[in-house]
Amino acid sequence: MNEQDLLAEHFEEHRTHLKAVAYRMLGSLTEADDAVQEAWLRLARTEAGDIGNLGGWLTTVVGRVCLDMLRSRTQRREDPWESRLPDPIVSGQADPEHEALIADSVGLALLVVLESLTPPERLAFVLHDMFGMPFDEIAPVIDRTPTAARKLASRARQRVQGAAPEPDPDPVAQRRVVDAFLAAARGGDFDALVAVLDPEVVLRADGGQALPGGMKVLRGIDSVAGQAATFHRMATASTSRPALVNGMAGLVNTVGGALFSVISFTVSGEKIVAIDILSDPERLAAVDLTGLER
Rank of each mutant, 00 (worst) to 15 (best):
R150T: 12
D222I: 04
S264M: 05
R159K: 15
T147E: 15
R294L: 10
P120L: 03
L54I: 09
R64A: 15
V90H: 04
L7C: 05
L54D: 13
V287R: 04
D136Y: 12
E47C: 03
G291C: 10
D5K: 10
S154Q: 15
R77I: 05
G132V: 06
I275K: 01
D68H: 11
L203K: 13
P169R: 12
F181H: 13
S223Q: 14
H98I: 09
R155W: 03
V36F: 02
L41V: 08
V61F: 00
E200N: 11
L7A: 14
H232S: 07
I138L: 00
S154V: 03
L41D: 13
M69L: 15
K151W: 14
M1E: 10
D168S: 10
Q161H: 10
Q227S: 13
A210K: 09
R122K: 11
N53E: 14
P88Y: 05
A139L: 05
R283I: 08
R283K: 12
G63W: 04
R45E: 13
E38L: 09
E293K: 05
L197Q: 02
G55W: 00
G208F: 02
L18M: 06
L110C: 03
W81S: 11
E293L: 15
A153R: 12
R175C: 00
V273K: 06
S240L: 11
A180D: 15
V126F: 07
M25Y: 01
R45G: 00
P86K: 03
R241K: 12
T118C: 01
P140F: 00
G257D: 04
R24K: 10
Q4K: 08
D50G: 01
P146C: 06
P212Y: 03
E293P: 01
R150H: 15
V262I: 06
R45F: 01
S261A: 13
S91T: 15
R42T: 05
A156S: 02
A235T: 06
P80E: 08
E38N: 08
L193I: 10
G55Y: 01
N53S: 05
L54S: 11
L101I: 06
L284G: 05
K271R: 14
M133T: 11
D95Y: 02
H128K: 05
R144V: 05
A164V: 06
P140T: 01
D5E: 14
I142L: 10
A100L: 14
G257L: 08
A225P: 00
M133V: 15
T239V: 15
T145F: 10
A109M: 05
F135N: 13
A229L: 11
